[in-house]
């Protein structure tokens, strides 16, 4: 086995690390969404009147936040089933008025909407797959302390968080590589999200090195260790990152707008943005009446609902991985 010596060599170094790493890692995960788990293990602060008051206030605040987040969505949902006149008069809040489903029929019968929708699904699936493959490999490599130049590789990734070339250089690069009008223009430039990369890296760093060592002793090479041992144990982080990427690609419109020259290739978010934004830009005096657009308010609402709903449905299915994924490592130690 070619890779065997490398693995054994690195073993002592790894043995020294887990203790301090596992303390540092959970903080690196950002938000701390598992107070329940921590409380279960070691109740702190101890339950008392003050603590109960704290919980009540907490619940109220969180409920208010939930309402603030939900209200606009429910409002759009109600508008999508309402008739134009009530929307324009501002009389639709949470319940549809002047029930109307013809708008749904109208939007759903637009072939451009459907072709753009197909594109979005295709772009999201392809780009997420590419992004997951690239990010996982990069993160796994970076998690190995014996890798030479590791710091430089992390530095290169982090550099792109702070600096980028800007629209036009990116556009020229993508044109030069003949990626325009292909899915690669969307998938490749966004294949590595540095935040996701760093989260994955610390996840891999937290994995007990003994597992990989045992696999190496049994004769697996690096790739098989990654494929057979590490990835099956990383479902949580993979699910989380897939969700992050899928939502990011689903919602993105700029790459499709900039790099696609044919509206048959646009994503549905470009379609949506064109409908929603054109109304606001009309009032910019320059766009004289010749180009004025008045897209009915309920058409906007219907499109918003149709674009938002599918990605919403992904959350419940991934949620359980999601919680354990982001907090994984929190209870080790």
């Amino acid at each position: 086995m070619v890779s065997e010596p490398a693995v054994t060599e690195s073993a002592p170094a790894r043995d020294a690390r887990p203790a301090d790493r596992s303390k540092a890692a959970p903080r690196g995960h950002g938000g701390d969404p598992a107070p329940g788990r921590r409380r279960g293990a070691r109740p702190w602060p101890p339950p008392g009147r003050g603590y109960r008051a704290f919980r009540v206030i907490n619940a109220i605040i969180l409920a208010l936040v939930a309402v603030a987040v939900l209200f606009p969505f429910l409002n759009v949902l109600a508008q999508s089933f309402s008739s134009e006149r009530y929307i324009n008069a501002g009389q639709v809040s949470l319940w549809p008025r002047g029930l109307n489903v013809t708008t749904y029929e109208h939007v759903l019968s637009d072939p451009l909407f459907w072709s753009n929708y197909r594109n979005t699904v295709f772009y999201t699936v392809t780009a997420t797959a590419v992004a997951m493959a690239v990010t996982t490999c990069y993160a796994y490599v970076l998690s190995k302390p014996h890798l030479r130049g590791r710091k430089a590789l992390v530095g290169i990734a982090v550099f792109t968080m702070f600096f980028n070339g800007g629209i036009i250089p990116n556009y020229v690069l993508v044109s030069f590589l003949h990626l325009r009008d292909t899915v690669w223009a969307i998938a490749l430039p966004n294949a590595i999200n540095v935040f996701n990369l760093l989260v994955m890296k610390s996840f891999f760093e937290n994995m007990p090195p003994e597992l990989e060592e045992a696999a190496a002793v049994d004769g697996m090479d690096t790739y098989r260790i990654l494929w057979r041992i590490v990835l099956p144990l990383s479902k949580a982080v993979i699910a989380t990152m897939t969700l992050f990427y899928a939502v990011m690609f689903w919602n993105s419109w700029f790459a499709a707008f900039l790099y696609m020259d044919n509206q048959g290739l646009f994503s549905v978010t470009v379609y949506l943005r064109n409908i929603v934004d054109s109304v606001t830009s009309v009032s910019n005096g320059q766009l004289a009446a010749g180009t004025q657009v008045q897209i009915a308010a309920n058409i906007q609402a219907v499109t918003v609902v149709l674009v938002a709903v599918p990605i919403l449905f992904i959350y419940p299915f991934i949620q359980r991985y999601f919680v354990s994924g982001v907090t994984l490592g929190a209870v080790k130690g």
């Binding site: 629209i167 036009i168 646009f266 943005r273």
Partner: peptide, 29 residues
């Protein structure tokens, strides 16, 4: 042979096309 550009961000795309050296021959609006 058109480069189709959505209304909402027409000028952004024109800027990228022109400055990126990919401008179509005719640029209306």
């Amino acid at each position: 042979n058109p480069t189709v550009i959505p209304f909402a961000d027409y000028n952004t795309k024109i800027a990228a096309l022109v400055n990126g050296g990919q401008a179509p021959m005719i640029i209306p609006k």
